[in-house]
Design a protein around this nucleic acid. Structure first.
Lengths: 107, 107
DNA sequence: AAAACAGTTAAGTGAATGCTTAACTAAGAT
DNA sequence: ATCTTAGTTAAGCATTCACTTAACTGTTTT
């Protein structure tokens, strides 16, 4: 079997550019797989596997509708990422402040 | 050679929990490798390799000091992550979620 | 000059990752 | 009933990953 171990880690899930692009696309709202897959140059199973990973970390939910499967964005797990990153925000503001001061000194 | 391909992708770099922990640790300030590696149960080369990845994506800078190598946090590449995630912030408050559902129902 | 220290580079390994094609399941259309 | 359509599951493959031990580089101490 392939793609069993998906690690259930949000950080790793968004580590893949295709998965980020899928999430970006889902901002436009709930979509069936085919429509979701349309802009990507990879096979449908590949998309399906990515969706499975996103499902496992909770970034996406699934709902049947006739013979389609509608996928919907659930961004709440991204809060974990947001929280982690925001720890560093102070660092880069101070750093950019310092850069600003430096640039001012130079001019 | 191992660990050559480090993809130079910030998202992937922070996908690894050990690397995130290293960054977290570097918030306390510039540190030599040995000190940095202290809490981890992996070998020094492994840490060194992680640092190389972090270096490649610019999250860390290196500076020699005698026989030590001081590593320093440079969080600015995390801005990329912050920017991406903040796109979703509006989605994860429940009020806006409800609004989103409402709007979808209408369309 | 030799030994010790701090760290990297090299080489190899097992497991995970992202992808493929082929085969399958389930629902709607003919 | 059969054929599409929509999508997943299975199996396999090449690459990448995180890690290891061993060997190396450069610096300080003795």
């Amino acid at each position: 079997m392939s793609r069993t171990t998906a690690s259930a880690d949000v950080f790793q899930a968004i580590g893949d550019p295709t998965r980020r692009a899928i999430l970006d696309r889902l901002q436009q709202g709930e979509q069936p797989v085919k429509q979701l897959a349309e802009p990507f140059a990879i096979s449908l199973p590949a998309i399906s596997q990515h969706l499975q990973v996103l499902c496992e970390v909770g970034l996406v939910t699934q709902q049947r509708s006739g013979r389609q499967r509608l996928y919907r964005l659930n961004p709440t797990p991204l809060k974990q990422v947001s929280d982690w990153v925001s720890q560093y925000e102070q660092f880069w503001t101070t750093k950019l402040d310092a850069l600003g001061e430096y640039l001012e000194e130079q001019s």
